[in-house]
Write a protein that binds this DNA or RNA. Structure first.
Lengths: 147, 147
DNA sequence: CTTGACCTTCCCATCATTGGAAGCACTAAC
DNA sequence: GTTAGTGCTTCCAATGATGGGAAGGTCAAG
């Protein structure tokens, strides 16, 4: 199976498969004589594992750990659970940051007529002290962009 | 006021102030004879505006629009509200994606003993079909990393 | 033997932000 | 007046995960 087929089978783009190989998340694929990467069912299985972990928001670093735990048949389930719980906590932290932003914005928006008149509490809220020059939401949550 | 003071007064790092100038989010600061940037109260006010918008998760592009709207005294409040509501929708989309991840992970974690034994439903959930090879959470929500 | 789809590597862009290096400017103390 | 320390300048690079694209080699079908 070449990289395109492996991509389709796993749901990981060819770009990312090569990238994951480069950063050593996965072992270098075997090659044909003409340097084409070849993948077997095991490789696809690993890629699927990666895709699922990625879809759950794990970082590449975390995925490295997860893959190691996956392959280590003698690992303690508590090791995996610990990582998962930490990640859940991280996700909840982000959710709280987003909720705080949403709440503030909704509050501002609810006071805005939204008509042709120029006065707008939203933009005034940005311009005037909206909580003063305190650490700010992003500092409280360690987030700034929450992409 | 030099850039360091403006930074302290606004809560925007000096690095970012220079960056915002470079990408034309703000107008180039006046300079002293020795090329030091000088800022006045108006500039600090603008920087505070930027910081608040940023803390609410607006992108630089959106902030450009917001700043233009802020300065345009004849804008319609509906223009501002529209932008705010779009951003709220975006935030809620991200929140939903995070909630979906959290839910799945919590479900998996709840079935994991978390002891010294190796069997772990979490990692098995990653390895085995956890919803099959469908578009996946990130595709459903247009997210992959949700930083 | 050509065509088109695929593969290879390499470099660049994204977004917002931080870090650092090299060099110049200012301030305070001696 | 020199020196130490801090702060400013510009420039370049890295982050993390991903996509885009160019230039060139390979493969299968017609």
């Amino acid at each position: 199976m070449n990289i395109g087929e492996a991509s389709r089978a796993s749901g990981v783009s060819t770009k990312m498969i090569r990238y994951y190989e480069q950063i050593k998340l996965i072992t270098p694929a075997h090659r044909t004589e003409s340097s084409y990467r070849i993948y077997g069912d095991n490789d696809v299985h690993t890629l699927q594992f990666i895709r699922r972990a990625r879809d759950l928001g794990f970082s590449v670093e975390q995925m490295k750990t997860l893959l190691a735990l996956w392959r280590d048949r003698s690992r303690a389930s508590s090791d995996v659970k610990k990582l998962a719980l930490e990640h859940i906590a991280e996700l909840e932290r982000k959710a709280a940051a987003i909720a705080a932003m949403t709440k503030t914005l909704k509050h501002l928006a609810s006071h805005c007529h939204g008509d042709e008149r120029p006065d707008c509490p939203i933009i005034e809220g940005f311009a005037d002290t909206l909580g003063d020059t305190d650490p700010g939401i992003e500092a409280k949550f360690g987030l700034t962009g929450v992409k």
